[in-house]
Design a protein around this nucleic acid. Structure first.
Length: 935
DNA sequence: GCCCTCACG
DNA sequence: GACGTACGTGAGGGCC
């Protein structure tokens, strides 16, 4: 314990490891003088995040001092095959050390040793001095250092790596990691290892023999002849490998550990560094913490930092009038509503916050009730809240009556000359619409962020405040409590409500001033102004309309399912020989593979048997009864719990309809998603499930009209990848999968074997998803080799596809994003990953995103135009739902034909006039009393 | 709160 | 032998 170390917890940062990952992971960027700085930028951000998120009191950044280290003395090939650093990276090495010093952190390196050795040495010293150690690195070579009080933190993924994660990765405890690495080798670092042995085998051997030396000494005992021979022959190579991978923990370091205590940076030094490198967004974000020194003057009207703000509680009409006058004068106001719940369709308005300037915001309570905070503490008598305040103690807070506040706010909120800015403003629009306010025009910071940085991070207020201002917003839990003692916002005391609500409006305003100008610099104005922004009122209207649901249909199905589930349960338990929880994959796996010893038991990484539908199906096909029944049980259980039961609860008692919410800033590709409930995944593929659609019905005198795009993604693939023959087939209205089969497999379309067509269809889909032999093989249940041949044949027939795929990957790698035909950017940071699995994932996403994203743009454009087209034609149809390539309407029976024509026209022409496609878009329509009939 | 499974396009 | 596999979502139940 006793030591002269002035801290309790040290962060040792692997600077060199980070440089490379940042360089390849962050899109190229240069500062005004042309120097590339993307890795510097990433590194700077990482430091800020580390320093902000972690309270440790010791910090040091460690670098490699050069290419050569003592390891090359006994093994010259070590890391020798590595290519030279890319030209754009070279100037950044120095800048990153400069950045480190600008943050007032020690920058440590030593000739002849790698950063890892210095880290190992300091970690040992710290541990011996009783100091906790966190090593910040994503290099697996450092995993050998993990022990109690020494952990690894992956800065890109922000996950901690302890003994358990090491065991996962190497199959052994940290103290045996070097033995495993010595056997398995490492092609990246040119560590030879023993031929024919990978990590899995190495771990198995080490676990069996204890350690490397024992294994090599007893190599004769190995049963497999080839492996035995290799171990004997290459024993020396294994020993050398071990010396290569084992980190040196006793480097005679120059710098003393005790000097690594954390010191705050000098604001002006840091500012100078950030300015020199053109990191304006970081300067803006750090704001106040950089302190004075603003000579450059480029941020003359720098905003006060979040947290230093002046918030006003508005309790009188006079005060409210002042704020409204301010909004009118400025022509812009940020707004946020507080309600009693998350569901915009049923929550009641509790208060409104407004902000016109940074640091200034107000909160107008209109529906707060007696706080009950004190009362709730001693006796939580729950239950009914009988006629108003109990005990006659009327402690309802002083506030403007709701209806009067709404009457005052309505004119400014509907004033075309005053822009209303919100974060997810659709929510506020829906709430206010229920009180008679049709808010317009609007801007939404969530959507600004979505179009500018979609795919890079989430776009919730908390994410954005943290990201752009390094500010942690007050959490809802902090004002309303959590768990059992959570209260609705109307019961939150006014002072707390003010802090919380006014901050939201304030932060939203700050985000708007930061992000709106970036539309122009990032060339995203068109996507925002022609797609996302005009879509907001359209979605709000659809959500408010909702869809009528016949509760009796659902109730009858639920009852039927309950009965059949009970029967199945009995049968399954009988077959299993005992009772168990069928819904537990863990218990089911044990029954199937341990107790019944059925074949094919495979454990995943969590140690549980896999029991997915594909596995149960193959067992069922082998004639086993139990898995077949479990499949039936699962289908019914899913339909009952997710659909027939829960949809009944989702019917709004006031409207008798179900009102979903569309999330406009979730899906990276630009698609919408639907939640609470999700109406985009109502069953259709099985007959049993499809019946659920019969419960979605039209109002008396109306029918449901479903119009969906035919093969839109494949059409867009033909367009984007420029596949002439595919395009021709679409132009001629041919059976596209049959044509593909005919062209790839060389069989005539006439009298084609349906199996062949099915395979071609799977390939066509595969193309859209960024095909792989593994994926196609799995899908078609054919050997991987066969799948590989199909793909090769396809590429040969349609070389444009291959070219497109390569182009998409290269584009994405270069810029960090791909784009749709309408200019939407889809960032895919995974493309820069070193881990091949993650990188491959990124590549497939890069292939799919422009296609899926363009389709999303197309239907959004159609949705924006449909309401006006219907109004112009004098039609009363209501748009109810969107399901990616389908729009569902409720149409008066007398207007069906006309409405169908108008909607199809709008959908098929949705690209005009922005884009002239060389492939026709086709929309098919269906009509019925319910959704099953209409689709 | 995470994992597994499964519903959709 | 391998990093692990088709793209994009949301929801419910089990389990720690």
């Amino acid at each position: 314990m006793s030591n002269s170390i002035p801290f309790n917890h040290i962060y040792l940062i692997d600077g060199s490891g980070y440089i490379f990952r940042a360089f390849y992971g962050i899109p190229p960027m240069t500062r005004p003088d042309g120097t590339p700085v993307n890795a510097v930028y990433g590194y700077t951000n990482m430091l800020i995040k580390l320093l902000a998120d972690h309270e440790s009191d010791g910090f040091a950044v460690i670098f490699d001092a050069g290419r050569e280290s003592f390891r090359n003395e006994f093994y010259p090939q070590y890391k020798a095959q590595r290519p030279d650093a890319p030209e754009e990276l070279i100037p950044q090495f120095g800048l990153i050390r400069e950045a480190t010093r600008a943050f007032n952190l020690p920058s440590i390196e030593m000739k002849g040793y790698e950063a890892d050795d210095l880290i190992a040495t300091y970690a040992r010293e710290a541990k011996e001095a009783g100091v906790k150690v966190t090593i910040v690195s994503s290099d697996k070579d450092l995993m050998q250092l993990v022990e109690p009080d020494v952990e690894l933190l992956d800065p890109m993924k922000n996950i901690a790596i302890g003994e358990e994660q090491v065991l996962d990765k190497f199959g052994v405890k940290p103290d045996r990691v070097v033995d495993v690495q010595a056997l398995a080798g490492d092609s990246v670092d040119n560590v030879p290892g023993v031929p024919g042995i990978g990590i899995k085998t190495a771990a198995q051997l080490i676990n069996e023999y204890g350690d490397l030396e024992s294994l090599l000494n007893r190599a004769e005992e190995i049963k497999q002849p080839k492996r035995r021979q290799n171990l004997i022959e290459h024993a020396e190579l294994a020993r050398i490998s071990r010396r290569l991978v084992e980190l040196k923990r006793d480097v005679p370091v120059d710098d003393d550990l005790s000097g690594f205590d954390r010191m705050d940076p000098d604001g002006s030094v840091l500012r100078a560094f950030l300015e020199e490198n053109g990191f304006r967004s970081i300067i803006a974000r750090l704001g106040e913490t950089l302190g004075g020194g603003n000579e450059a003057g480029q941020s003359a009207e720098a905003e006060a930092a979040p947290g230093e703000s002046e918030y006003e509680l508005v309790q009188t009409k006079d005060a409210l009038a002042r704020w409204i006058a301010e909004a009118n004068k400025e022509g812009i106001v940020t707004i946020d509503t507080e309600t009693t719940g998350l569901d915009a369709h049923s929550a009641e308005l509790v208060g409104v916050s407004l902000s016109c300037k940074a640091g200034k915001a107000c909160y107008i309570p209109v529906g707060h009730r007696s706080t009950e905070a004190a009362a709730a503490a001693d006796s939580d008598q729950g239950g009914l809240d009988l006629a108003g305040p109990t005990d006659g103690s009327d402690d309802t807070p002083s506030q403007i009556p709701r209806d009067e506040a709404i009457a005052l706010l309505k004119p400014v909120l509907e004033d075309a000359g005053v822009l209303k800015v919100g974060q997810n403003i659709k929510y506020d629009m829906i709430v206010l619409a229920r009180y008679g306010i049709e808010m317009a025009p609007i801007d939404d910071t969530m959507l600004l962020s979505y179009v500018i940085e979609g795919g890079l991070h989430g776009h919730g207020m908390d994410d954005l405040a943290q990201l752009h201002f390094g500010h942690s917003t007050i959490k809802f839990k902090d004002v309303a409590g959590s768990g059992k003692s959570q209260v609705t916002f109307d019961k939150v005391p006014l002072d707390k409500a003010l802090d919380y609500a006014a901050e939201d409006a304030d932060i939203t305003g700050r985000l708007h001033r930061l992000l709106k100008p970036r539309l122009v610099t990032d060339r995203m104005t068109t996507v925002y102004e022609t797609i996302e922004r005009p879509l907001v009122p359209v979605l709000a209207r659809m959500e408010r309309t909702g869809i009528k649901v016949d509760r009796d249909v659902l109730r009858r199905m639920s009852n039927d399912f309950a009965q059949r589930l009970a029967e199945l349960e009995t049968q399954i338990h009988t077959l299993a020989g005992r009772s168990f929880t069928i819904g537990s994959p863990k218990q089911l796996g044990e029954i199937l593979f341990d107790e019944m010893s059925l074949p094919g038991g495979k454990k995943g990484k969590s140690g549980a048997y896999a029991t997915g539908a594909d596995i149960l199906e193959s067992l069922a096909a082998q004639g086993h009864d139990l898995p077949a029944r479990v499949l039936d049980w699962r289908q019914l259980a899913k339909l009952k719990s997710t659909y027939t039961d829960s949809l009944q609860e989702q019917i709004n008692p006031e409207t008798g309809r179900i009102h979903t919410s569309y999330a406009q800033a979730i899906a990276s590709t630009g698609r919408l998603s639907s939640n609470d409930p999700n109406l985009q995944n109502i069953p259709i593929r099985t007959e049993e499930g499809r019946k659920i659609r019969e419960a979605f019905v039209a109002e008396e005198g109306c029918k449901l009209l479903s119009v969906d795009y035919s093969q839109i993604e494949l059409r867009l693939a033909a367009e984007i990848a420029d596949i002439e023959s595919l395009r021709q087939a679409f132009l001629e209205g041919q059976d596209i999968h049959a044509i593909t089969a005919s062209q790839v497999f060389g069989v005539p379309v006439e009298g084609m074997d349906p199996m062949i067509r099915r395979q071609a269809k799977a390939i066509n889909f595969g193309i859209i998803y960024g095909i792989s032999a593994f994926g196609l093989a799995n899908n078609l249940r054919i050997p991987q080799n066969e799948a590989r041949n199909y793909i090769a044949a396809y590429f040969e027939r349609y070389p444009g596809i291959k070219a497109y795929m390569e182009r998409a990957k290269a584009d994405c790698k270069k810029h960090g994003f791909v784009t749709t035909l309408f200019g939407r950017k889809i960032h895919i940071p995974a493309i820069g990953e070193k881990n091949p699995a993650r990188k491959n994932f990124g590549e497939r996403a890069a292939i799919n995103a422009p296609i899926q994203g363009t389709a999303a743009d197309v239907i959004k454009r159609a949705m924006i135009r449909v309401p006006r087209a219907l109004a112009t034609a004098g039609l009363d149809a209501k748009m109810l739902l969107q399901v990616h390539d389908e729009l569902l309407f409720e149409v008066p029976e007398a207007q069906i034909e006309e409405t169908t024509a108008v909607v199809r026209e709008v959908m098929e022409k949705a690209c005009d006039p922005a884009l002239k496609l060389s492939v026709p878009l086709v929309a098919d329509a269906g009509v019925g009393r319910n959704w099953a009939e209409a689709h």
